[in-house]
Design a protein around this nucleic acid. Structure first.
Length: 497
RNA sequence: GGUCGCGUAGCCGAGUGGCUAGGCAAAGGUCUGCAAAACCUUCUACAGCGGUUCGAAUCCGCUCGCGACCUCCA
């Protein structure tokens, strides 16, 4: 079997994964800013890295997965007055900042549960780690790479860049930065435009504020991730993930902060997922084109033709490689819905199928083909988490399962060993690694018995060739969202839409 | 303007220098009282123009189109 390789954004090539401590893997992923409701774009990194941590666990690593909650807020855009996003929004909504932060954090968690994302091992908040951030800033000042002006502290990028490869991760040259950085508040306080804030002095109207050696203020955006990843994963850790849009300035700044504070870079492998686009444009607040998760699940957004089940969205995301952009459309989501239903039905069928137990395959070609498709799955995952290819192979296997059930293929065509391998593969890859689930609500036994009763009446009518009655039962159930299927063996199954 | 990336059949999308990914849709067939589902078959694409090569969607160059980042952003 192959070994895990994936693309390191820092070196821009696929590398073999070797964890710092054998058997253990540390993963840090930039979490959401909880100043608003999570949208579809947020689904991508958390589902992507959920699969990453699931796969690492599958490989036997003991994983510590840290994903932060940014609840301290940053600056307003468009060069306006420096304002804490969280506090400004809170005033509009007449809520305490922490009240609002709590609300959106809860909504985020709810969304993550619906997506079947495992909970991180630790979910630290920025506000809960002010002391650690202050302490890290002090270290950077002591080492001479940060300076204080009017109660704010800035990182000296120019000095840093003289000695270290600033801009390597995001592929940019500092000189350009010095030219192009826009006028933002506090710009005149900086020695160079490219310098970024470690600590900001809080204006009087700013609600969220903490005491610091430099007066009352609040931390800069980048320092929280540096402080919290160091605290929980160590000064050097394995993987840091996040959206591509965070490469600059966020991750570039993290590298600079850690390099100075610890004397060396912290992250072994950088991973970045690509964006979800809508009509070719990135989904984001600035573009005013976001579809919130709640709207997605309820269908209550003008662009949505229908509601979409969280699993459909998860499947849709996993059908594309995480480093490619993914364009939203109703057509694409609807295609995913049908595809997932088909795949899941095959999986459910597989669980109910019995195998005659023959050790030798009656159809050696088919048996070989099936084992080949199965054997490729780990190779695909090991090659930069290619979930799209894994799903493609599962789709290759689905007709085999359906054919055994449908009688087109005899159950003894594949060997008992292959059959059990097939079962294991579906369970392992669909459920454990890709984290997919069925879309149907848990069918209650009560409903089950009611449907059985109706099915019996209908079967009786069919026997009498009273098709009017049998069709009426089927059609009315269909209207209620329950679809009956007459199976070849005379039994009746049903699915709920 | 700078940096980076992308352009694949009706749609979504994977992709290694040589071996038609896969899904959805569509068409035909099998099965079925009829449906639905399932199964089988068909639809062989890589923006354009050059180049390298025995051979390129895959490497190189140019052109066109699109996007991301450079500012909060997943």
């Amino acid at each position: 079997m192959s070994e895990l390789h994936f693309y390191n954004s820092y070196t821009r090539q696929k590398e073999k994964f070797e964890s710092i401590t054998p058997g253990y893997a540390g993963l840090y992923v930039c979490g959401p800013t909880v100043s608003g409701e999570s949208h579809m774009g947020h689904a991508r990194p958390y589902i992507t890295f959920d699969v990453v941590q699931r796969y690492l666990k599958h490989l036997g690593y003991k994983v510590r997965y840290v994903r932060n909650i940014t609840d301290a807020g940053h600056f307003e855009e468009e060069g306006r007055e420096a304002q804490d996003k969280v506090s400004e929004k809170a005033k509009l909504e007449k809520m305490e900042p922490m009240e609002m932060v709590h609300k959106y954090t809860s909504m985020f968690h709810h969304g993550m549960r619906l997506f079947n994302c495992d909970e991180p091992s630790i979910e630290p908040t920025a506000t809960g780690h002010i002391i650690e951030q202050i302490s890290m800033i002090e270290t950077i000042i002591e080492k001479g790479y940060a300076y204080e002006v009017n109660g704010s502290v800035y990182f000296d990028v120019k000095k840093y860049a003289d000695k270290y490869p600033y801009g390597k991760l995001s592929g940019r040259v500092l000189d350009d930065q010095l030219e192009t950085t826009r006028e933002l508040d506090g710009q005149d306080e900086k020695r160079n435009k490219a310098d970024f804030a470690l600590w900001k002095n809080a204006p009087p109207e700013h609600i969220m504020r903490w005491k610091s050696p430099w007066g009352e203020g609040f931390p800069g955006w980048h320092i929280e991730c540096s402080a919290m990843s160091s605290k929980y994963l160590g000064e050097t850790f394995d993987i840091h993930g996040g959206g591509m849009d965070l490469q600059f300035p966020h991750h570039e700044s993290e590298i600079a902060q850690n390099t100075i504070a610890h004397g060396h870079a912290s992250v072994r492998y950088w991973m970045h997922n690509n964006m979800i686009t809508i009509n070719g444009k990135k989904m984001g607040k600035s573009y005013n084109n976001v579809i919130k998760l709640s709207e997605l699940f309820s269908g209550s957004h003008p662009i949505l033709e229908q509601p979409y089940h969280p699993m459909v969205v998860r499947f849709y995301i996993l059908q594309t490689h995480y480093r490619s952009t993914l364009d939203f459309s109703n057509e694409a989501l609807q295609a995913s819905e049908r595809a997932l239903r088909r795949l899941w039905e095959a999986y459910e069928l597989l669980q109910k199928l019995n195998h005659p137990g023959n050790a030798e395959a009656a159809d050696t070609n088919l048996d070989k083909q099936v084992t080949d498709w199965i054997d490729e799955c780990p190779d695909f995952m090991n090659d930069d988490f290619n979930t799209a290819k894994v799903l493609a192979n599962l789709f290759e296997l689905a007709p085999v399962i359906n054919s055994i059930k449908g009688g087109q293929v005899k159950p003894d065509a594949i060997s008992a060993g292959t059959f059990s391998l097939l079962k294991d593969t579906f369970k392992t890859y669909l459920e454990d690694i890709l984290g997919l689930q069925g879309m149907q609500a848990e069918q209650s036994n009560k409903l089950d018995s009611v449907i059985s009763l109706l099915a019996e009446i209908r079967a009786d009518a069919k026997k009498r060739k009273d098709f009017a009655t049998s069709d009426e039962i089927r059609n009315k159930l269909q209207k209620a969202g329950i679809i009956l299927k007459d199976e070849k063996d005379g039994t009746v199954s049903y699915t709920i839409e």
